[in-house]
Design a protein around this nucleic acid. Structure first.
Length: 149
DNA sequence: GCCAACGTTGGC
DNA sequence: GCCAACGTTGGC
């Protein structure tokens, strides 16, 4: 079963929010590379929930894919922050998935700690300037990160 | 608030 | 198809 990592701004959706909600739609991805990874996800896949653009950037927990990729409704909603005027219900280039809460770590695994792991040098997340918000995580990387909990 | 890195747009 | 300009991401 493949593993992934996805970034979310906790002001938008945090691991605590997902814990409270149980489930949520993961929408608003507007980058083709990230979208293609979204489309590769299968129900049951696990991912690390990363908090970005916040006081303590890092991995905050684990969640699971509950529904595989489908056309992202937020692209069609004029009131949405993620509205895309070029998208239509016939031709919507963007994808969303549904996710479910699995686990919140007792403490966020902070970015500097992740960057210090030699097992994670290939992970785009730790690369300076990397903006990719959805990425695959190898089994070895998954285990290395789990060991930091 | 700053700024480096990156993706996208659009003129040519 | 090139590439400069621009907008966005995201750590600090």
């Amino acid at each position: 079963m493949p593993f992934w990592l996805m970034k979310s701004e906790p002001a938008e959706l945090s691991i605590a929010d997902l814990q409270r909600l149980g489930q949520a739609r993961w929408d608003g991805v507007r980058n083709y590379q990230a979208r293609n990874f979204l489309r590769g996800m299968q129900v049951g896949d696990l991912f690390f929930f990363y908090h970005s653009s916040c006081a303590v950037p890092g991995i905050a927990g684990i969640a699971r894919i509950e529904r595989a990729a489908y056309p992202d409704p937020s692209a069609l909603d004029p009131h949405s922050h993620y509205f895309d005027a070029k998208a239509s219900s016939e031709k919507n280039p963007w994808s969303a998935v549904d996710v479910a809460f699995v686990e919140a770590f007792p403490e966020v695994i902070r970015l500097p700690q992740l960057k210090a792991q030699s097992a994670l040098t290939a992970l785009p997340l730790v690369h300076k300037g990397s903006r990719l918000s959805v990425m695959p995580v190898s089994t070895d990387e998954w285990q290395a990160i789990l060991a930091l909990r």
